[in-house]
Design a binder for these strands. Structure first.
Lengths: 121, 121
DNA sequence: TCAATAGTACAAGGATCGTTGAAGTATGGA
DNA sequence: TCCATACTTCAACGATCCTTGTACTATTGA
């Protein structure tokens, strides 16, 4: 991931509604959610949500597909992982200990959504 | 880390000059760098840099101390690590596989700056 | 105390962002 | 074909952000 894309991603995530959208879609999983469902869940106007979805799309953090009348959005897990990596590389380059500190917080994956097993390649 | 702080951090990092400042300070290590050195390295006016340093300070991503005439800035590694964690929790909550994908990129810590050993607590 | 150095603070401007409401586009059913 | 549904696009406006230059503050040395 290059700086340009990282900047776009940070910018996209620096807005409350958009951060909530991403979280909602991440939790929703691969199936995604229709724009209407997201708007309802977050209590945002369709027009406003559409604006923010476009921003997230530009940053590459979400993708969309049409499904009958609805447009279904889903999180781009790869892009999110790339962003984590980008951030970690910037951290690590001066302070390797951070990785250790991160590895101690394994709980994040073992708790709530145990729907998919980790595909350790 | 709560949403408010994450939003502030993302916002701070969504600007090119500030991203470069953070990277510069991360590479500089615990000793930090004087404002003047940063300004020189990045070719930004003192006044403009000061503005961006304040933003980064508000977000908690850097800290400062006076040293004679200079004001020395350094990266807040804890805040950066918290941000990585925040992002990973949002990712993982729908997609545990990401952690695996991240663990495959260990190289990031083993390369360039081997100045400090990882303090695996 | 005076001058030089190192930064910060402030004001003004242009640029970008976020919200709103109204109008436009695609899909599906009667 | 006509209407309803599900979204998106557009224009307008206020709010915020970034840059620039000038003024101000703190520290040091003569």
């Amino acid at each position: 991931m290059d700086d340009r894309q990282a900047l776009a991603s940070f910018s996209a995530l620096s807005q409350e509604t958009r951060l909530q959208v991403v979280r909602t879609l991440v939790v929703a999983g691969q199936d995604g959610l229709a724009a209407g469902s997201i708007a309802e869940g977050l209590d945002v106007s369709p027009s406003n949500l559409s604006f923010h979805l476009k921003e997230l799309g530009h940053a590459g953090l979400i993708s969309q597909r049409r499904e009958s009348r609805s447009i279904v959005y889903s999180a781009s897990y790869d892009a999110l992982a790339d962003l984590v990596k980008f951030l970690m590389e910037d951290c690590c380059s001066g302070h390797p200990g951070i990785r250790a500190s991160l590895e101690r917080s394994e709980e994040c994956c073992d708790g709530s959504t145990k729907s998919q097993e980790a595909t350790v390649a």
